[in-house]
């Protein structure tokens, strides 16, 4: 069975641009319009945030977007409702990113089944332990052709990175620095870490995320991996916009061109 994430990396090895946006943000029904604009203006992959009340790995910007989305009425049920026919318009690979609690309550099997039904390709659940995934949930994710993407950080040991590489599918999410999202830690310091990752010759493609906010940081990330993930900077760009499509167009142009 083929998965859109694998298809993307089969054809594009460098400069893959993955953009994160919290679902139901800025307004409840913006989920699909945001995806359409991202696709039209040149993103390669979309990561939709499933908002959670207590997002431990996120900084204030993404926290606030989650709070706002929940206030707007976003939930897993509403999200799957919104995504019901999205494959008629969106051909980019789409990931859902969020925390384990709402997914557990929804039911892992139910969740995977729904993802497959609507056409989601992958999932990022930072607080799902790799061991538990392997022993309890892997067959379910595989049955529904859903890739589970794991994170590595500058503090992750080589042994563990290799282990993560064997368990991950789709790509590996390399967190650029040990931080919550949206911290402005200097990417220059991560050079050695990026080079170390590169030298490991992992089987999965690698996308670098956290701290990417413009052309310079995107290119720095892309030069050491298959591309980058932008979240906080994108949320900032659209949080107060009066024209979603124009803001998204300008944002992507700013990352990809001069």
């Amino acid at each position: 069975m083929s998965n859109r994430i694998d298809q993307l990396f089969a054809g594009k090895k460098t400069g893959v641009l993955n953009i994160y946006c919290t679902a139901g943000f800025p307004e409840l029904n913006d989920t699909l319009p945001v995806m359409k604009s991202l696709q039209q203006h040149g993103a390669d992959m979309i990561e939709l945030g499933m908002p959670f009340s207590d997002p431990l790995a996120d900084g204030p910007v993404i926290q606030d977007s989650s709070t706002r989305a929940i206030k707007n009425g976003m939930s897993l049920k509403v999200l799957f409702e919104q995504l019901k026919d999205f494959r008629q318009q969106i051909h980019l690979p789409v990931l859902l990113m969020g925390y384990l609690n709402p997914v557990l309550l929804y039911g892992i099997e139910n969740f995977c089944k729904k993802c497959a039904e609507v056409g989601v390709d992958g999932v990022i659940l930072p607080d799902l332990p790799m061991d538990e995934y392997e022993t309890e949930y892997k067959p379910v994710f595989e049955q529904y052709n859903l890739h589970l993407i794991f994170l590595v950080t500058p503090e992750t040991t080589e042994d563990r990175i290799r282990k993560i590489d064997t368990v991950s599918k789709g790509f590996i999410y390399a967190v650029s620095s040990s931080s919550t999202t949206g911290k402005d830690k200097d990417m220059g310091h991560q050079q050695a870490y990026f080079e170390r990752l590169n030298a490991l010759q992992l089987t999965n493609p690698v996308l670098i995320g956290f701290g990417i906010k413009d052309k310079a940081t995107f290119e720095a990330a892309a030069s050491h991996s298959n591309g980058g993930i932008i979240g906080t900077a994108f949320i900032r760009a659209i949080e107060n916009t009066t024209n979603l499509d124009t803001s998204i167009k300008e944002f992507i142009a700013g990352v990809k061109h001069n």
Binding site: F52, D54, I70, S75, L76, N101, P102, V103, L104, L105
Partner: peptide, 21 residues
């Protein structure tokens, strides 16, 4: 509460039907 995850522990947790704490 119902079974859930708070502060990295699986335990009983007060939460909404959508899994928000």
């Amino acid at each position: 509460g119902k079974l859930g995850i708070i502060h990295a522990s699986k335990t009983l947790l007060m939460q909404t039907d959508d899994g928000q704490i």
